[in-house]
Design a protein around this nucleic acid. Structure first.
Lengths: 193, 193
DNA sequence: GTCTATAACTCGATAGAC
DNA sequence: GTCTATCGAGTTATAGAC
């Protein structure tokens, strides 16, 4: 299943054959059917696994680097930046990829992708809550967590196609500017349109 | 080619067979090869066409609704909102879909997808420039245009998977809040971190 | 549990009639 | 130009030996 996760990420779902997965797992194609009754079920297991490893594999190592909740958010975004650079813009966010690859015709997978997004937003939302009074009290922090995921996914998408880190960096820079304005609000009440 | 554009959008590139395309074009599979020497070349022609129709088909009807440059940006985003609602979250941005479907293994297509993104950002950038002094003078308007595309693509991605307009709306709402803060800057100089 | 062998199918692409 | 017919390759999935 680790093999499936890797190759789905590298090549995409449709472009990956079960023989490819079996080869990386040092097995033969037919053996996979002992554990998964179809390619689709294998994908669902991979997506379920992504949910399970998000905290121990993705978040915990980042959370460990700093205890400042806002720094954790920036560090999480940096993780995707490193992924882009490290893979020379070939891969990207594995969940985002699968979202636009199979989200529209594999309903069960779509639901599990949504659950992964919810988990990610939830983790960022926790950071925003923990930031307490450093952000405006009346701020919609759920909405802001969704917004941050949008910026990340959109930035990764653009940088992959541009084969340049520029669009990702530009997106994160603007996000940081927004935060600096949110955090300076204390000095003067913000007037909503 | 219109048929190809539609079905690539609805089903995705890998899930679309040339027979499907020919059927919608009221032709037979073999006939396509008189115009396109491969499925990949057909995709490239579709992406080239997207660039060509962006202005007359996507932008001009929106620009016509209002001459206010910032309203044009919100109206453009509303167009994607309507697309999500109108298709019950099945489709999404056709370029974004293709970006994460084939961007990593069809190099020529990836370049043309990038060109589409550049065109979109360019149109938004023109709006931001036209907004003149309504935005801070020292603002990076190229970066902001990239940011807006990120928010749109990320919002569409999340809403499709959630089958709910909430993530898209939340993303756009936060973006509007950012703009309202940018526009109120005139009242008091903003201190950069 | 893991393998081999293969069934059943789909797809992209080509050849050639008209 | 558009069609029919088909090739060849690759795929998912199954059957059954070991």
């Amino acid at each position: 299943m680790q093999a499936a996760r890797e190759i789905f990420h590298e090549r995409g779902y449709a472009e990956t054959s079960l023989a490819d997965i079996a080869e990386r797992a040092r097995a033969r194609g037919g053996s996979l059917y002992y554990f998964f009754k179809s390619k689709e079920k294998l994908l669902e297991a991979v997506l379920e696994d992504y949910k399970a490893i998000m905290r121990p594999v993705l978040l915990d190592p980042i959370w460990q680097k700093t205890s400042d909740p806002l720094e954790r958010v920036w560090s999480l975004l940096s993780r995707y930046r490193e992924l882009l650079l490290h893979t020379e813009f070939r891969y990207g966010c594995p969940i985002g990829n699968l979202a636009l690859q199979v989200g529209h015709y594999l309903p069960e997978a779509r639901v599990k992708i949504d659950e992964n997004f919810r988990g990610w937003r939830g983790a960022v939302h926790d950071c925003l809550q923990e930031a307490g009074s450093r952000l405006p009290a009346d701020l919609d922090r759920e909405g802001l967590a969704t917004f941050i995921l949008s910026v990340m996914e959109g930035g990764v998408m653009q940088s992959r196609c541009a084969k340049s880190i520029e669009p990702f960096d530009a997106s994160v820079d603007v996000l940081k500017d927004y935060f600096s304005r949110l955090q300076s609000e204390g000095m003067r009440p913000h007037r909503k349109e």
